[in-house]
């Protein structure tokens, strides 16, 4: 049984103080929130959560990309996901 929202793309941006590391469509994102990993699919409820440190996994239509993030927050609203981290880099 398919999870509702799985496979549908939404907008994601990964932003560090220096620059935008990623901006585009993603189908599934795993974010290291402060209290554990958080999976995001299309149609997620509006959410604002603090980040811990760890790996950020992004499933795009073109493949998987990984980032290391530490501190910051994630904001989800209207299928727009913004991962804003003080220290972020592509792994």
């Amino acid at each position: 049984m398919a999870v509702p929202g799985s496979g549908r793309p939404f907008t994601l941006s990964v932003i560090s103080p220096e620059r935008k590391l990623f901006e585009g469509e993603a189908k599934f994102v795993v974010v290291p929130a402060f209290d554990g990993e958080l999976g995001i699919l299309y149609g997620h409820a509006p959410l604002m959560a603090l980040l811990g440190s760890g790996a950020l996994r992004v499933e795009t239509t073109a493949g998987t990309r990984r980032f290391r993030v530490s501190g910051g927050f994630v904001q989800i609203a209207d299928n727009e996901v913004a991962v804003v981290s003080e220290r972020a880099e592509e792994a």
Binding site: F34, D35, P46, M48, A49, L50, G71, G72, A77
Partner: peptide, 21 residues
Amino acid sequence: RPLDYIFEPSSEEILTFVLPL
């Protein structure tokens, strides 16, 4: 843009974390 956000942890804690940033 009023949206009913879920806050993890509370909005107050998020604010105090984001302010130094």
